[in-house]
Amino acid sequence: MKKASFIQYGTAVSLLAVLLLSGCSTPADAPPPPPPPAQVVVDYDAQALTSYQQARQFVAQGRFELAREQYLIALAIARNDYMRERLMHELQATELMLRSSR
């Protein structure tokens, strides 16, 4: 008889643990997932982006003079202020690398 009460107690504890754990895994008041980020269209010139990408490749190869030329081309045809700022920053960094390598 003592064995039967132990089995009933163990079963009750197991059932209670399963119920508690299953309740924790799926909260009823969970907020909905956030919406996907909006797509932003930025007015970049395709040639400016191509020149920028080419300049970055030249920098990675250590060809700083060619990179400088491509940054200048991209800067001349850039359409917005953010792109111009970024190009000026990259151009200054490239010129520093040029000076330090001489």
Score class of each variant (00 low, 15 high):
Ile7Cys: 04
Leu49Cys: 07
Leu91Gly: 02
Tyr9Trp: 10
Pro31Arg: 13
Phe64Gln: 02
Pro36Leu: 11
Gly23Leu: 12
Ser100Tyr: 06
Arg63Tyr: 03
Lys3Asp: 08
Ala4Trp: 10
Leu15Trp: 06
Leu20Phe: 15
Leu15Ala: 15
Met97Asn: 10
Ser14Pro: 00
Ser22Gly: 15
Ala55Ile: 04
Gln92Ser: 11
Ala93Thr: 13
Leu75Gln: 04
Glu90Gln: 09
Lys3Gly: 04
Tyr82Phe: 09
Leu87Pro: 04
Leu49Thr: 01
Gly62Met: 08
Pro27Ala: 10
Tyr52Val: 00
Leu72Trp: 00
Gln61Leu: 13
Thr50Pro: 00
Ser100Lys: 14
Leu72Glu: 05
Ser100Ile: 12
Ala30Trp: 07
Ala12Pro: 02
Ser5Asn: 08
Glu69Gly: 06
Ala28Ile: 14
Ile77Ala: 02
Ala67Asp: 03
Gln39Val: 14
Ser25Asp: 09
Ala30His: 07
Ser51Leu: 11
Tyr9Leu: 15
Val40Tyr: 04
Glu69Ser: 14
Ala48Glu: 04
Ser5Met: 08
Ala4Tyr: 12
Ala74Gln: 01
Val42Ile: 15
Gly62Asn: 08
Leu49Val: 09
Ile77Asp: 03
Pro27Ile: 08
Pro33Cys: 00
Thr50Asn: 08
Arg99Lys: 11
Gln54Met: 03
Tyr9Val: 10
Val13Trp: 03
Leu15Glu: 09
Asp29Met: 12
Glu85Asp: 13
Val42Met: 05
Arg86Leu: 13
Glu69Asn: 12
Pro35Phe: 02
Ser101Pro: 00
Asp29Ile: 11
Met88Cys: 02
Leu72Cys: 01
Ser5Trp: 09
Pro36Phe: 02
Leu96Phe: 08
Arg84Ala: 10
Gln70Val: 01
Leu75Arg: 06
Gln39Cys: 00
Ala46Thr: 13
Ala38Lys: 15
Asn80Gln: 10
Glu69Gln: 14
